[in-house]
Amino acid sequence: MTSKFYKRLFLLPGLLLLIAIIIFPLLFTIRVSMANWNVSQSGLDWAGGANWARMFHDANFWSSLFRLLYFSFITTTLQYILGFAAAMYAWKGFASRRFFRVLWLVPLMTTPSVMAIVWRSIFREDIGAANGFLRLFGVDPIAWSTQIFPAGVTITIAEVWQWTPFMFLILLAGLLSLPKEQFLSADIDGATPWRTFWSITFPLMAPISIGAIIIRLIEASKIFDSIFNLTSAGPGNATETPAYYLYTRGLREFQISYGATMGLMYLILAILTLTILGQILARVSKPRGL
């Protein structure tokens, strides 16, 4: 009995911490989502499912989610391909690789706001470096932030630049931890580098790749800084994502309860999507017949 008591007692600090930082905020958010907390109504009255009903009819929220799917997919795919390529390059070894490894981490160490401001300067349509560079070759300036397609490209470039090093770092660590035996066998059997990559390196890297992709997707789903600084979700609402939409409604317009509702729905969808995606990726990339 005493032993059980002490065991429980030792669990208590962790349990309290869990309640304080996860359970309570979550319950509180659920409660807020069922109230009318806004500019003129403070506190927690009872609105039932009104905010939820409103959200299901809010076309802007749902379209922002679809836009997020697009941005997440494009940026994460590009980051994975580029990060993997760079990691392979660093893994195989080249001169000054330590220097380049550090250099690769610079974008990752840059705070997103600073990064966004730098890109904003580069993509300014009137005096920005990107259009200045294009003019050198007689190319007409591109409307980087005022036309729908280029605005999407601008956000994608900024995101890929910042987060590819993360992929690089994780994948390089994975490559360095791979067992040597399979590669030696392949070498003895005379496998081409391409064949070695597809039959050995890539399958062995699958678990690490899935982890890296999932982590990146979680991060990408919160995309905000670059959109806030580069396009303000424009032109129109062409680059508006749920994080930006939530910020506008919840914080700027002080629709606290409605913001909480959208936040919860977003959380539910993110958990569901990422769980399903993780399962699919794990099945598809399961190493076979090594």
Binding site: R124, E125, D126, N131, P141, S145, T146, S232, P235
Partner: peptide, 8 residues
């Protein structure tokens, strides 16, 4: 002006 569609 160039970029005028994104002027604050």
């Amino acid at each position: 002006p160039q970029g005028g569609g994104n002027f604050g």
